[in-house]
Amino acid sequence: MVAVTPKNKLSNINRELKKGRKKKKKRAYGALLARTGVALLIVIAGVLIWTRMPLMSIFIRQQLIQQGIGTIKEVVVQGNYHTAKEGIVQQLDLEPGMLLFDVDLVDKQVAVESLPYVKTAQLSRQWPDRLLVSVTERVPVAIVNLEKLYYVDADGQIFKRIDPGEEVDLPVFTGLSVAQLQKNPEQGRALLDLGLKLLACWQENDAYGQEGIAEIHLDNAFGLTVFTRRHIWQLRLGLEEFRLKLNHWQKVLNYLGKEAERVSSFDCSAGYSVVIRYGDASH
């Protein structure tokens, strides 16, 4: 019987550690060779496709598909909130087993950006088998009534019809029509931009925010008229200097106090003066 000394025990441990390191190196080396082979095959395929060598590219393509190398196995979508991932993937219209090489990124970008809520889209390949889609969505700030109701964003882009039964709580632009936009699109666009400008000025003041806007009526001759949500006031503001006129209106409200609840309309369109109306009487 051979006695195991601490020295022999330590030697045995070192030998086992060396064996483990050798096995680990072999596995790592094998994995590296596999990754290198895949990468090399993908590069060769790309070069052949790029240089338009059809016979060789077809052969390499078949090999890639058979081995499942370079084919799209996953689509990752980022930045979507209103738009479902399934809708974006459907819009991409990718064929089963499609190679990443074969994806026309520009064409697919245009397809994704045609979705109502998508403002911008960026597509990129993530080798070996992933397609990344990053989108920026439009944020509705108001509704425009064009016989049917549509969302409009801060850029004035009318981008989606509101579905029946859909719950919304946004100011409504009225006064425009489809016929008007078709006949004189520049004028319609200018009025819509003024409405958005007024809405932005309104949202700068917390006091206005508490009152709320139910409707902004757009009229090229008489200007913009706000119908408030809380007191149902009618507020005429003309076509310019909205911030100044709103400040004058706020001063009048402060002066009137509770008496303002009896007012039905304020006419601030003249600039520095504010004409108020109690029912049918003007003061």
Rank of each mutant, 00 (worst) to 15 (best):
Q122V: 14
R21M: 08
K251T: 11
V252G: 03
V47K: 11
L105N: 04
V133H: 03
L99W: 00
F266N: 03
L32A: 14
I162C: 07
T71N: 09
V118L: 05
V4Y: 10
N14I: 15
V2L: 15
L244M: 10
S177M: 08
L92P: 09
A154P: 07
K258D: 13
L115H: 06
I216P: 05
V226M: 03
E137Q: 03
P6K: 07
V252L: 15
K7G: 05
K119C: 01
E215G: 05
F59Q: 11
L181E: 06
K108N: 02
E167C: 05
K251G: 14
I44V: 12
Q109I: 12
L253I: 03
V4A: 07
K73W: 14
W127G: 02
L170G: 03
D93W: 00
A179H: 06
S264Y: 05
S124G: 12
R161H: 11
L146T: 08
A3G: 12
A200H: 11
T225K: 14
A28V: 06
I143N: 01
A190E: 10
L48H: 02
L55Y: 09
L41T: 06
E259M: 03
M1R: 14
I58G: 00
L100K: 02
A154Y: 10
L235G: 10
E74L: 06
R35V: 09
G212L: 08
R27I: 13
K183R: 11
F227Q: 08
T120K: 07
I213L: 07
A45Y: 12
A207Q: 13
L123N: 06
G79T: 00
S177W: 07
K26N: 06
F159R: 02
Y29K: 09
G223M: 13
Q67W: 15
D219P: 06
M56L: 14
G20Y: 11
E186L: 13
P185V: 04
V47D: 02
L17D: 08
N12H: 09
L239A: 03
L115P: 08
P116W: 00
D153R: 01
G165C: 07
Q157K: 06
Q182R: 12
K23A: 12
T36E: 11
Q203C: 01
G68S: 03
S124M: 14
F101S: 05
K251S: 05
F242R: 01
L199T: 01
G165H: 07
G30I: 04
L256Y: 04
I69P: 10
